[in-house]
């Protein structure tokens, strides 16, 4: 199974007894989705979303020797859109991240590879003015 999120493609194991929903092994969550399961709930960076008590049993399951999380259920709860085609799942942006970032007008951080092979992170340029410019060859 392939998960597309945050500009990344991650291959992860699929739960074979329920392929209708997006089940992700808890161990794969951070790499594939950016979210991490913690005692206080699901966390993305500084932001944590508690899991509703009545959903815990439904969304966290033990199967095929691993602990799984029903990510599609969680995504529905937080309003994150996802689309699938076969075994490829594509996750949209997390509305709350976008909302809080835009409210403060904080430039969203990103990491991409420069033409010379170096990693470029926007936050590395704090203290300098940045003009970020997009274009396309088409």
């Amino acid at each position: 199974m392939i998960i597309l999120a945050n500009g990344k493609m991650t291959k992860v194991a699929q739960r074979t007894d329920d392929t209708e929903r997006l089940w992700v092994r808890v161990v794969d969550l951070p790499g594939a989705t950016g979210w991490q399961m913690k005692p206080q709930g699901m966390c993305l960076g500084e932001m944590c979303v508690p899991l509703p008590d009545d959903r815990v049993e439904e969304w966290i399951a033990d199967a095929e020797d691993w602990v799984w999380m029903c990510y599609s259920g969680f995504a529905d709860m937080i309003g994150q859109k996802y689309v699938r085609d076969g075994d490829v799942w594509s996750l949209g942006s997390v509305p709350e991240v976008r909302r809080s970032g835009l409210e403060a007008a904080i430039a969203p951080d990103f990491e991409l590879t420069e033409r010379n092979g170096e990693r470029l992170r926007l936050s590395d340029f704090r203290g300098r003015k940045v003009v970020l410019f997009t274009w396309a060859s088409w």
Binding site: L4, N6, G7, S93, L102, I106, A107, P108, F110, L112, T113, E114, R115, L120, L122, S123, F125, R126, G127, R128, K129, V130, V131, L132, F133, T134, W135, A136
Partner: peptide, 27 residues
């Protein structure tokens, strides 16, 4: 940088090219 998945446009809410943002010293 080359951004084959249009990450930057998604993050900044841009719907065409060219687009640009000015980002100050505080980000």
């Amino acid at each position: 940088v080359i951004d084959p998945t249009h990450q930057i446009s998604s993050l900044f809410g841009w719907v065409n090219v060219p687009s640009a943002a000015w980002i100050d010293e505080d980000g």
